[in-house]
Structures are given as C-alpha cells and as structure tokens.
Design a protein around this nucleic acid. Structure first.
Lengths: 333, 333
DNA sequence: GCAGGTCATCGAAGCGCTTCGACGCGAAGG
DNA sequence: CCTTCGCGTCGAAGCGCTTCGATGACCTGC
C-alpha cells in the first residue's frame, strides 16, 4: 500500500494539486463545493501531508525543540508537568515537539536550527550565565527561555515569579502571627550553579520578612532524610522560638515533616510549615501542606504561546512572570 | 545571511552536488583528496543538511517518536530517566526524538507515521489491552514497546523482568531468615488499569515466597502518608509476626519508613524493608533502603537499539526482559 | 595495443509539497 | 455591448537533497 500523496487526492477529487494545497492551508479562497469535494477525498484516501516535503517547500517544519536539563537536583515532577503542557499546547497550534537534552549544548541547538529540523526553541532551566544565550541571540529561529539569564535583553523569558513566591510564604506566616521564621531551600549545588530561581525565592522571602519585621533565616537544604533531620534540628536548636518554616525543596518536604515529628514538634500547633512544591506532593503529606504552587503547566503553556507568537512575527514582551498561588492546607495556622 | 545549501558546498569545493552528498553519506567511494576538500568546505561554510529535504529525498527522517504516558500514578523520575536515556541513545545513532503524549492516542501515532515525521515509534507504559497495539501491528513503521500487552506476537517488547524483581525481594528476605513477609504494591488504580508490571511483580513475589515456604501477603498501596500509615498499621495488626516488607511503590517508600517509626517498629531490627525503586530514592531514605533497581536507562537504551535494528531491517527478538539487580543497604538484615 | 574492468565523479531525475503568476468566467460598470 | 474586475482554479517552478545511470580516466592482462 503506497503512501497517499497530494497528487492522489487531486486526481480523486478531480482538481489540481495546488487546489488541494489551498484547501488544506486556507491561503486562498476556494469555493465551498470544491473544498468539500477535496476534504472528502482526503478523508476517503486517508491522506496525510508528507512532513518533509511540506517543510522543504514552506520553510516551516511545524516542530519546536524542547530542551530539558537532566542534571542532579532537578525537580522531576515539575519538569514532566512542564513537558506535558508544552507538548499539549504545541499540538493545539498544530506543532510537534522535538525533545533534546541540555547536554547537547549550544552545538545541539545550532544543529537543529540550522538543519531546519525545528522552527523555534524552548529552553528550560536557563542559568544566570548560560553559555547558550549568546547563540540564541544570533540565531534566526525564535526562542523562549524558562528562567532568566543575567541579561534578558533581546530574549524572551518566562518564569514563575519566585521572589513573589518567597514573599507570599513570609506574608502568610506573618499574617498568622509568627515572629520567627526560616526558609529551607534547594540543595547547595543548585545555588552554586546559579540557576537563579533559588536565590530569587530566598531574596523575596527575606525581603518580605523584613518588611513585616520578622526574624528570618534562609539556608540551603540537602535532600536525604538524615541531612534534612540534622538541618531541622540545628535550626530549632539555634532558634528555639522558631514557629514558621518554609520549604522550597520538593524532595525534602516530606522529610521535614518526618524530622519535626521525631523532634517532638507538632505541625501546625508548634511549627507551621509552608512548602513551595507541586500540589500532589503537598496533598500527599501528613498533615497536608499549605503550599505555593509551581504552575508548571501555566509556564509551559505560556512559553509555547509566546514562541508561536514569535513564529508569526509578532512582538512579545521580553519578560513574563507568572503569579504564584498559595493554597492553605493543614500545616499552617 | 542566506542558509548554506549543498550546492554552495559543491561550488566552494569545486565538485558536483552529488559528490558532496556521497562524501557525507559514505555511500560511494570518494578519493581521499576530494573527500577532504569537501569536508573542509563543509566546515568553512558551516553547512548543515536541510532535514526536510533529506527526509523527502531519502524517505528517512532520522527521527523517532517517543510516546510517554501522563496519567496519574506514574512514576515520574523513572520516566524522566527513561526519556533521557532514549534521547541520548538515539543521538548516538544520529537520530532525534519527537516527544508525544499518550493522550494523542492511536490517531496521533498514525499521524506522525503517515506524515513520515518519524521513522519509528517507541511507546512507554503499554497496557495489557492497549488500543494502540492493533495499529502498531499494521503500521509500516517499526515500533518498540516498553511493557507487555496481552499478546506480544509480532511486536517488539522490552521491560524490566518484574516477576524476577518480586522474586528477588522474596529470595532476599528468605535468605535472611524471615518467615512472614508482605508486599505493598502500586495504588489500586494501577492494577485496575492493567498495566501488567504491578501484577507481574506480585506474582513473582508470591511464587518465590511459596517456593521458600514463607507466609506471604501482597496488596495494593495508595500514596498519601495517612493511607500508607493505615495500611502498614493494618498489616502489622493482622500479622504481628511480620518481619519482612517489600514496597513496590516509589512515592510510598518514604512514608512506609515514617509509618514504621511511628508504630514503634525499628528498621531493620524489627522489620526488614526492601523497596523496588530508583537508587536515589533508596539512598535518600533513612535508613537507606535495600532496593531492587528499575534500570530505566538500560531499558531506554535497549529499546532504542532494538528500534534502530528494526529500521535497518534486522530481525529482533519479540521480547526482551532486563534482569533486575538487588542492592543491599541498611534497611534489611 | 586494445578489450574489459575499476574507480571516482558527474548530471539529472525525482521526492511531495507550496506558491506565484496566469487564465477563464461571470458580474459589474460605462 | 464591450471593458474591467475579482473570484476560483490551474500549471509550473522551485525547495534542497539522494540516488541512479552514465562517463571518463586509468589500469590490467593477453
């Protein structure tokens, strides 16, 4: 069974090849009757345009690249959610998604762009001093970054507003009347890498706490149970009156609750805990965690929209920050 | 800066277009001097073959589709590891990866295959009665499945040998002298969906336990802390002499340890725990969990290899089972 | 010294699609 | 009644690459 081409459709419908093309693309007016006849033939024959031929002739592959990091300390569930929403949204725009890993580096981006395999690029987990940024600036293909490099000038960046997220946590604890609070962040390695979001959360947290006149403390946090336990113990030893704890580390959130239990602190009676993490993790904990959501799906959707707009030649804002949302559950009062 | 085509390279090197093509593909003998001249021109001009044109002319897109599930109860980290290893391995074969979500269903597969967007398909998380299987059977493009449908006849399937994994856990506990053991599995919904791997683990576990003459019990397990706690409590109430516990549920593994702690059972002194999960989760727990690894990377690599072999027209085995590996840590004795 | 065979290279024919200019036709306008 | 216009359609020219058959140049062996 030979594959069906546009010529087969044209013959079957009794029209020219170009007419079929125009029916399918809608780029020229076609009479209703002809359109219907063509559409019927398409369906009857089971025609699917050849992607390569289309890309060659139209200079549009209808594919975008999604570049995911795969380093240690990554937040897998969020990443998956994000990837899923990118794929789903891209499909709504009739595009497909080529998956790349960050370890292909700038060369990889150049390769897929120069070979016209993709029309645009979506990069996740951009670092402050990301070596790929200079390339993106000079590439003809449009790109959208998740995260912010040091200088976003001339780029298009999307991210959760992590500073607001940190501040939101501090605000919430302040509203509840807590006076001494602390933030347990990502593993040290994440700060060293300079991904930005971790610092921004801390900064927002500290700033808001200061605004409320609270005693506040913020430090990195590793992810093994024993290290979390030690960190929590140390914190409580140093600051016996600590009553509010923010955890910006998805892998550690459950362990923090376990550690508090062992250390004889009830949640939320003795210590209120607020996490910055996906909802499912917050809901699965005991007690269920008050949390600030990382809206991975929104970020993905928004990133694709911006990229599509750029593909259409529209101007888009350099920077888009998504508003975090606090959900109050059982772990804070 | 117009994009560089093969004609530009040919002119620059003073040869015919076809010669450049043959240098690049190696499909015909080319003298060393000419080859070098062409290669130099390629480098100097920064030539990258146009993917669409190549696909059109050669009928090979050098792209494979990776279809990931995105349902509840999925094991995200494993999924990511898997995806990563697929991408990395595919690149070694000079192929790229198109990411699709399972919710595009059989139509989606048909679309990318019929449009020649991809040369082959890799499906993850295939179910016992997967509606996509009939399509795969009749598709011209080769495919490889991760997981096993009811009838793997005529397909190519790869998976971890879950029955062996379950048996390995039972063997280990038997060797340590435990007489009453139990397995806590995936959430109920996973069994209902009929994904197969969960049942196979249970079956292997029960069979091996029987072989050793042990009292054994196997049941599903939800993933919230409270439900895990309740399940563990119930189990210990019903079976006071239970001393070995296998957890085949990554999200629940940490909670099981927390529950045992609350219930006053020491690990491993009172109860030995063995998990079937990725190493990082096992290592991050306290005590570190003896575990059977889900070798996501091996599965991904193997799946890509099989797919590439099929693309070359080679015959490959219908079924490939990967041997699980037990790592002894602190939680069992 | 010439038929026969290699080896390296070339030219041209597509691959299946989009897009541009052209064309025929009926309606509108003078 | 003839020109003008716009609508709907067609034909053909590529898009950049692979691949097939052809062509020389050169070597071999008798």
């Amino acid at each position: 069974m030979r594959t069906v081409t546009i010529a087969d459709v044209a013959k079957h419908a009794g029209v020219a090849v170009s007419t079929v093309s125009y029916v399918l693309s809608g780029k020229r007016a076609i009479s209703a009757t002809t359109r219907q006849r063509v559409l019927d033939s398409v369906r009857v024959l089971g025609y699917h345009p050849n992607a390569g031929a289309r890309a060659l002739a139209s200079k549009r592959a209808k594919v975008i690249a999604l570049v995911l990091p795969l380093r240690a300390g990554m937040n897998l569930p969020v990443l998956m959610q994000f990837a899923t929403s990118v794929v789903t949204t891209a499909r709504q725009y009739d595009h497909d998604v080529l998956l790349m890993t960050a370890d292909e580096g700038a060369d990889g981006l150049h390769r897929v762009a120069a070979s016209a395999l993709v029309d645009g690029l979506l990069l996740m987990d951009v670092e402050i001093h990301d070596p790929r940024v200079p390339l993106l600036r000079k590439l003809a293909e449009p790109s959208v970054l998740i995260g912010f490099p040091a200088d976003p000038e001339g780029l298009t960046c999307v991210d959760l507003d992590f500073a607001r997220a940190g501040a939101l946590c501090a605000d919430h604890l302040a509203d509840l009347g807590h006076r001494e609070i602390a933030l347990l962040g990502a593993p040290r390695v994440v700060y060293e890498r300079g991904t930005g979001f971790a610092e921004r959360t801390m900064a927002g947290f500290v700033e808001a706490a200061g605004r409320h006149g609270l005693e506040a403390d913020a430090r990195p946090c590793e992810e093994s149970f024993d290290e979390v336990h030690a960190a929590v113990k140390l914190l409580l030893d140093e600051r016996p009156r600590l009553s509010g704890l923010v955890v910006h580390n998805e892998a550690a959130a459950g362990h923090v609750l376990g550690a508090l239990r062992i250390l004889g602190r009830r949640v939320p009676e003795d210590v209120s805990v607020v996490a910055i993490c996906p909802d499912d993790i917050a809901e699965r904990a005991s007690p269920a965690l008050t949390s600030v959501l990382i809206p991975a799906e929104d970020v993905g959707r928004q990133a694709v929209r911006l990229l599509m707009a750029k593909l259409e030649g529209q101007a888009v804002p350099e920077s888009t920050l998504l508003e975090p949302r606090l959900t109050i559950r059982e772990s804070s009062r």
